[in-house]
Amino acid sequence: MNPLRVIEAVLFASDAPVRVVDLARAADDLDEDGVEAILGELRIEYERAGHAFSLVEIGGGYQLLTRPEYAGVLDRFETVPRSGTLSRPALETLAIVAYRQPVGRAEIEDIRGVSVGGVLRTLIDHELIEVVGRGEGLGRPLLYGTTTRFLEHFGFRSLEELPRSDELPVVLSRERSAEPVEEEGISKEEGDGEG
């Protein structure tokens, strides 16, 4: 079988992004470079043929997605699964988790000024965040981080693709670092979380 068509079949039949390393299992003499080359060919093929879908790099893998211009039509079909959108409190909470991960509930509540227990539960239920460890502070609080599903849901390739915080109009990193760090046990990872 033509490895290109095998990979196409896997992408076609998958309901989530497939990682390059997994696609490499499609044929015996295939390595990741080979997969990348094939993905490039497929991308060009779909582009030239004017297909309604294209090959998109998302959530750490590759997936076939319809082009945005068909959204209006697809919305009218019951057979097409609809994507849900998150509430404002969920988005705010998720933003804090995304930029500060790993982060505990206390810090999130401190930033938002409201309790977030219910929102966290919803985000966990939707597999957008997960427990990634425990902090070192009082009671060893649970720390949360984002999941691959989070990347899929927002269309990011990886966490590096998040809008960087220094592109935002308000920057706080300097003021924060000037403070004596009192956050419970998460201070060490804080620098990494900003990426």
């Binding site: 309901d15 945005p68 959204a71 899929e152």
Partner: peptide, 11 residues
Amino acid sequence: ALRFARGYQPV
């Protein structure tokens, strides 16, 4: 949300 995948529901 403008792009659809097969059988995939983001949330």
